[in-house]
């Protein structure tokens, strides 16, 4: 299933956040979205997943979600959004409880996603006992349990330290290699975008508009940090982003 934004504009109380954004997230690929902080990336993701209604334009699903998908559009949040009063397994079970599944089926799904994210040993742990990286792995496991058609990831690694981020990026690459999931991946970190993105859309500062869309053909599993082609793409994007970020930085925050 593809996801598309069609000429979307959005404002909060008179502050224009997104202007005429048209963007497509094709199935089986990771579409990265980069832009300076405050440019409307999170807003765009909320519009894509139906957590908010656009003022103008439409968010569209093209094609049907795969059979058995419990929650076609599934988020992974920057700050994990785990319930502190549920264990790791309980947090994952939460998103299955409203679906007509037998107890055995639920347990099976939970065990399966825990194994896929290598969390099996932590099923009974409380979120507070886990490191940031582990918590985000739980959130990813929870997203997988809902069998999404598209994963909407809002800076999933931004709250983590640099080493953990590297490890989790490797995990995501391996996961994509196995499952070919579809994702819209928001980040303000170009290195992340160049490592994980098949397409990279650069947004301008507020009001966010699409400045450029770059496609990277190197397969995810073959991308090396020192690959000259990737370094060139990153330098190109950085030049674009740099002006926007500098201007955005000098702006007064509206609210």
């Amino acid at each position: 299933m593809d996801l598309r934004l069609d000429a979307v504009s959005h404002a909060y109380g008179g502050v224009e956040v997104l202007r005429d954004v048209t963007l497509e997230a094709p199935a089986g690929r990771i579409t990265c979205l980069v832009g300076p902080s405050g440019c409307g990336k999170s807003t765009l993701l909320r519009l894509l997943g139906g957590l908010e209604r656009p003022d103008a334009g439409r968010a569209l699903m093209l094609g049907d979600p795969p059979a058995g998908s419990l929650n076609p559009l599934t988020y992974v949040f920057q700050h994990f959004a785990l319930l502190p009063w549920r264990t790791v397994a309980g947090n994952i079970r939460l998103v299955l409880e409203d679906h007509p599944l037998s107890r055995a089926e639920r347990d099976e799904i939970v065990a399966d996603v825990l194994a896929r994210t290598r969390l099996t040993d932590f099923a009974k742990a409380w979120p507070r006992q886990l490191s940031g990286g582990m918590r985000q792995r739980v959130a990813i496991a929870r997203a997988l349990a809902a069998r999404p058609a598209v994963m909407l990831m809002d800076e999933p690694l931004s709250a983590l330290d640099a080493q953990t981020r590297e490890l989790l990026m490797d995990d995501l690459v391996a996961l994509w290699g196995r499952e070919r999931f579809t994702a819209v991946y928001v980040t303000h970190n170009l290195a992340e975008a160049v490592r994980l993105g098949h397409r990279i859309a650069v947004l301008s500062r507020r009001p966010g508009q699409v400045r450029e869309i770059a496609e990277i053909d190197t397969p995810l599993e073959d991308r090396r940090p020192d690959d000259p082609a990737l370094v060139a793409v990153q330098a190109d994007l950085w030049r674009l982003l740099r002006e926007e970020a500098a201007d955005a930085d000098r702006e007064l925050t509206g609210a």
Partner: peptide, 26 residues
């Protein structure tokens, strides 16, 4: 953000109140 999370996973209103709001207010 926890309530948002519940909505984003399509949890019912009842589930959100019983499993997110009430334990959070406990």
């Amino acid at each position: 953000s926890l309530i948002r999370m519940g909505q984003s996973f399509g949890l019912s209103w009842r589930s959100i109140v019983l499993k997110i709001v009430l334990p959070g207010a406990a």
